[in-house]
């Protein structure tokens, strides 16, 4: 079962007040964000709950949720490490960096370490071509990455 906690409920009231009744589906993204903040990822139960509140089908919620890579539909680790794989980063060797990170963490792309600390993902574009290759850990950007820098950055996350 999924239920929004009290803090979320207070936020939801404020969010819903922003939109007219017949456009309440506009609150979908903020509600997904809240659900993810609460559970760590968006559970199917949360999708059903959000769908009911906004008068859309759970399938629709799922379609929106899976469109955005920052919403997770599976449990993730404490730190989510993302490598940009789009063209600038690709030309600057992101593939090697990804491989290095995989070896270092002992997991494949899309997986989470057994201690639930790191999840490794690829990202289509992180919008920082000038400083490629780019790596993102949770909400922080790390630019001009090298294997040494990966050691240093990942080491700083305890």
């Amino acid at each position: 079962m999924f239920a929004f906690n009290d803090t979320s409920e207070t936020r939801i009231k404020k969010i819903m007040a922003k939109y007219p009744e017949d456009r309440k589906v506009s609150a979908l993204l903020p509600l997904l964000t809240l659900a993810q903040a609460q559970e760590g990822y968006v559970t199917p139960e949360a999708m059903v709950e959000i769908g009911q509140r906004l008068d859309v089908s759970p399938a629709y919620v799922e379609s929106v949720c899976t469109f955005y890579t920052m919403y997770y539909t599976k449990p993730v680790g404490k730190y989510v490490v993302k490598f940009c794989i789009n063209i600038s980063c690709h030309l600057n060797g992101c593939d090697n960096l990804m491989e290095y990170a995989e070896k270092k963490l002992g997991i494949k792309e899309g997986e989470t370490t057994p201690d639930k600390k790191f999840t490794l993902l690829k990202e289509e574009c992180l919008a920082a071509c000038t400083e490629a290759p780019v790596m993102q850990v949770n909400n922080k950007y790390h630019v001009n990455m090298t294997p040494e820098k990966i050691d240093q950055v990942l080491g700083s996350y305890k």
Partner: peptide
């Protein structure tokens, strides 16, 4: 499914070339 049936049972999941017609779960 959305416009005619009105129940949004069938949706596009994921994005880009991984786009996939599917239902909830």
């Amino acid at each position: 499914s959305d416009i005619i049936e009105k129940d949004q049972a069938l949706v596009m999941r994921n994005r880009g070339f991984q786009n996939r017609v599917s239902t909830f779960k």
